[in-house]
Design a protein around this nucleic acid. Sequence first.
DNA 1: CAGGTTCGGTCTGGTCACCGAACCGTTGTG
DNA 2: CACAACGGTTCGGTGACCAGACCGAACCTG
Lengths: 169, 169
Amino acid sequence: MALGVDYAAQQCSVARTLEVVGSRWTLLIVRDCFFGVRRFSDLREHLGVSRAVLAERLAQLVDDGVLVRVPSGGREAYDLTAKGLALWPVVVALLAWGDEFSAPDGPRRLFSHAACGTDLDRAGACPACGTSPSPYDVEMRPGPGSRGPQGPGKVSAALQERRRLLESI
Amino acid sequence: MALGVDYAAQQCSVARTLEVVGSRWTLLIVRDCFFGVRRFSDLREHLGVSRAVLAERLAQLVDDGVLVRVPSGGREAYDLTAKGLALWPVVVALLAWGDEFSAPDGPRRLFSHAACGTDLDRAGACPACGTSPSPYDVEMRPGPGSRGPQGPGKVSAALQERRRLLESI
DNA sequence: CAGGTTCGGTCTGGTCACCGAACCGTTGTG
DNA sequence: CACAACGGTTCGGTGACCAGACCGAACCTG
């Protein structure tokens, strides 16, 4: 991780993972990528992170093979790679814990299996199908804990719509 | 999180969770608690974190209800609360990702369901029973990626033994 | 093509978190 | 009682993070 980038002698896989995604903002950037935020300015608007840090994190994530930088309509965009998509269970686990202990009004977002419409359980699995759908097959919509868009920006507004994960905003 | 503790306006559960466990070392401390490390000096020996930071993190985790401080044989110890135990899926998800992408020799540790002896899958579920066992019912042992104790300390040595999770070292 | 705007960054100066090392009070132990 | 181990706290030094200024390239706009 940044923050004194290495957990030195740690061989443990948890530490190895945190070296990649353990820095401040990194996992929130990854989360936003799952939500379809792909552009520098959109990430900046939605996260409120400083330009310098965002640039550094994106470069690091590209370096680590979590994201790829792709030109898109004359501008740059960042897409999750297979390695990045594999972080979905991490995001789900963090989300579930936050929903359970820090969301008194209930989840702010709900996720459902697009194929069958069933809401996912806390582990990210579809109770009806008995499988854990890929994020491509997951739909997101506001939940009871939602208090409307959190900011005035177009990204916050877009994330209030029912939408498919990974679909570009 | 420390590191400029708050993700400000972020209402998202992922951000809320990271405010609690997103600081450097925090999740490694929690991981060690699952492994049975309970004492200040043992955590320090195993993690190599500075005294000041460890003290601050432990105090914060107790404040946040993830750990409880309990006297144990005249000394202090830290135990996971129910809220802390609920972080098991987060640790499992990070572990799985690290095993998949940063462990060329295979996992350093393997986990099995104590009740039936079956190895857990990447999601932390028991393929034989079809359930995700509580960490109390999980046994840990060295895997193919293990290169022996990573340090000379008694904690590193103890973690090379086959042992039940959460069992005090 | 001149002038302005948007985008995706880099640079800078200040602040705050992290680090190693030293210090300190309490609790066993010989 | 001397002494060590434990669980911290305190203290400079270093480096990460922040907001804000600056900058080059691409794209309108007239």
